[in-house]
Design a protein around this nucleic acid. Sequence first.
RNA 1: UGGGCCGUAGCCAAGCGGUAAGGCAGCGGGUUUUGAUCCCGUCAUGCGAAGGUUCGAAUCCUUCCGGCCCAGCCA
Length: 558
Amino acid sequence: MSESDTAPPSNFIKHIIDGDLKAQKNEGRVHTRFPPEPNGYLHVGHAKSICLNFGIAEQYSGLCNLRFDDTNPEKESVEYVKSIKRDVEWLGYEWAGEVHYASDYFQQFYDYAVALITSGKAYVCGLTPEQAREYRGTLTEPGKNSPDRDREIEENLVLFQRMKQGEFEDGQYSLRAKVDMSSPNINMRDPVIYRIRSVIHHQTGDDWCIYPMYDYAHCISDAIEKVTHSLCTLEFEDHRPLYDWFLDTLEMESHPQQIEFARLNLNYTVTSKRKLKTIVDEGLVLGWDDPRMPTIAGLRRRGYTPASIRHFCDAIGVTKSDSVVDLGMLEFAIRDDLDSNAPRAMCVLAPLKVVITNFPDGKEEFLQASRHPKNESMGKRGIPFSRELYIDRNDFMESPPSKYFRLAPNKEVRLRNAYVIKCDEVIKGAGGVVQELRCSYDDKTLGKKPEGRKVKGVIHWVSVQHALPVEVRLYDRLFNEESPDKGDDFHSSINESSLVVVKNAMAEPSLAKSTKGSRYQFEREGYFCIDSVDSMPNRLIFNRTVSLKDSWAKEKKK
RNA sequence: UGGGCCGUAGCCAAGCGGUAAGGCAGCGGGUUUUGAUCCCGUCAUGCGAAGGUUCGAAUCCUUCCGGCCCAGCCA
């Protein structure tokens, strides 16, 4: 497992941390946290955040907590908690100590809220949500004070306790921080910090019927956990003054520094939990782990490796500019990994029968081929050769263009790991469809160049009688448009051929031993992995992770 | 039109007053029993624009232009 990892690149957050360390802030500690809300599956965007937070902890010999930001029980569930833990582990990271939950601190949040009320910095407000919106003002106009803003401290205390005891309806009252209704920053206009919700929480059951809001709970959780750098995405930039206000007002010992970075956008991809959920709910894909999904679970099932995702995250960098990364970058990361680590094999996706007329019927030869062209330590595999073979229909053309160097009438081609053959005859069936090719082989070309001529083309093949029928699922991008995320309706940009199932592909027999987790390069086709869900030992199913780069396809387009 | 951010090549991204790193993609070439990989070369007289300061500006100042985010009792 010696990955030739070069040092991960620096970024503006590391510059800040370097400065903090130099100034001896936080006793030289670096402590981050990854704080997902368990309300959906993690996706590539989260991978960026995970790699950033855990990566920084690693690089500075610090710690990174996994903390579930579970303050909104209505949308959360343990199913998500489980999947998130698994995904973080799969990516190769280890969180500090036990898993944390914001809900672990519900009592402390409550006590701090009482302290806020006692110091006159919070009040119970009886405005309905609609009224509260009106009182909030607009982007250009200041808000108005709530009629309850100057309620007596004692009364606030009693009301807040009654809220906790479940004496009121959902939404009847809220607890609000007393900040500034005329602030140009809307987040500072007396934000709600507690709401009444008589619902069961996946961690705390029916212990509570009031739940804290993100802005209030998040900063306190960070402070309780002695986090030093609280990294979040750009949309929270406007919330930073509030983050600081709570910690300052509560005179918390620890005051983590919030730093915002740009979330990941990928073209041809949707990365919004809501839209991903729609895709799953509408059956556009087969589930959260469908290999076309940009979820960690989807990428895993598609055949992406944890290392490739980590390298991708290193490659895209961390900045504050709102950018769109090319999907090609992700594909490069997995090709790069698998090129050096995936053993090679041959698999014919669209079989076309070839009869080697000068090869004796019933004879078999067992040829040897390297599992990897540059890594002999991966060993060799045996490949049977016989009179009847399959090649791919795409590797034969009756009237080829000039630069086509595969098989054509009276032309020669190299069978990968085997002999050079020449196409002598084309046999067609009804409708003029090519049904079979009659070829002759040159028995002096095994491991040798043919004499007196050059054969440029090399194609893959498999022996008919030895072939292993397998199912191959060819996955492609889910969307045809670069920005399916723009606008509300992504349906029109769905790629109808994002999955093409090949029921009877013919694989070389050595593949029969493949097990879950096996990854291969099917030579001249792409990288494939055994499907972790549907593949059976007697009925292997391969998922195409990514195709090989194909400069012939480009040439054809010209 | 209030507030907060962001503009460096097709995309991502270094750069922090001394004369534009790197990666992806592209293009050209070499090696090759994978049209893959690998290797070599090429790709911003230019840093959103215009002014200014300076011997010297992507870096400092001014103005303008463009983009993103914020009016949930979501996170």
